[in-house]
Amino acid sequence: MLLEARDIEKSYGTGAGAVRVLSGVSFRAAAGESVALTGESGSGKSTLLHLCAGLDRPDAGEIRIDGQALGALDDRGRAALRRDRIGLVFQQFNLIPSLPVAANLSFQARLAGRQDAAWCAALAERLGLEGLLRRYPEQLSGGQQQRVAIGRALAARPRLILADEPTGNLDEATGDAVLALMLELVSETGAGLVMVTHSARLAARLDRRLHLSGGRIA
């Protein structure tokens, strides 16, 4: 199984006490499978995605990627995992502000030592970024930044794509095109895709749909 989450619990400590966000979430995603993650705002979608990416640790439960338990990995191991197997698209894009678009696009692929110039060029073309490669992130619109973030995640041909509302800032047509691109990659490379979205229309185009509510998968 590509991604396997079992009984995940997570709370955040705030000034007013602990806020329980996830209370026993379990789900799986197989290679070549695309999963939509929906839920109302604040239900914990981003939190779950960050846990799956090994960015944070759950309070309880276990997450496995390709059978490898994330809890057993140290900092370095988790960093290697993110670098080598995961493509992350953040809700807030989080491009690297000091690097131009081209460098942002290829950043992770180069970090993972898997740069494929032809693939990068193709991605830029498919995402409509050809004219923007020399610009810096702050000189792009929100949607353009989002497309760079998606390109960055796909450039390394990751095993698992974790996308947090990747189409939130895109018009319908561009959103569709971007989703098509991701699904294409999934079917081509057998990668898994977990995508947070508020759009039922987009969710319907994926293989499966999980709904997060009250800290659990409904």
Partner: peptide, 16 residues
């Protein structure tokens, strides 16, 4: 932090 966090997320340890 906003400049470092993405690099971390993309696969670098904090120590690095």
């Amino acid at each position: 932090l906003p400049q470092l966090a993405p690099v971390w997320a993309l696969g670098l340890t904090r120590a690095h």
